[in-house]
């Protein structure tokens, strides 16, 4: 069985990329494939609390974070240096990696998909 990393790097509200990346993660999990997530760049916006997008702006993907445990998706990694995140309330289930850990993370999976 292959261990998969889904890397989200796109803005959650500018395109469907994050949504379709997360959909793929849910399908992998539904088929009992081990899958972890990592976030960088504009995709980090998913983490901030108190999002209230309108239908035109898109689905509230932040809400799905709390549901990931039901899919056995337990590891969501970000890089530690995103200090702006610590200035506002964010989702608490993330794991912070330092730069070296972040870089070695990618080689620990048989496959990485980017969205």
């Amino acid at each position: 069985m292959k261990h998969t990393l889904i890397h989200l790097n796109s803005s959650p509200y500018s395109s469907l990329a994050c949504k379709e990346g997360l959909d793929f993660a849910l399908v992998l999990a539904t088929f009992e494939q081990p899958v972890d997530l990592c976030l960088s760049g504009a995709a980090l916006a998913i983490l901030t609390d108190n999002q209230n997008p309108t239908a035109e702006q898109g689905k509230n993907l932040h809400k799905l974070l709390d549901g990931l445990e039901f899919y056995d998706i337990e590891n969501i990694f970000i890089e530690k240096h995103h200090s702006w995140l610590s200035n506002q309330p964010t989702w608490q289930g993330i794991q912070l990696l330092n730069e070296a850990e972040w870089q070695t993370m990618f080689s620990q999976y048989q496959q990485v998909f980017r969205f």
């Binding site: 849910l26 539904t30 009992e32 809400k63 799905l64 709390d66 549901g67 039901f70 899919y71």
Partner: peptide, 18 residues
Amino acid sequence: DFYTEFEVSPAMRPLVKA
């Protein structure tokens, strides 16, 4: 409640866990 909370309709496995 699951849908209101997470904005997704669960498949079998997450439904069973929930």
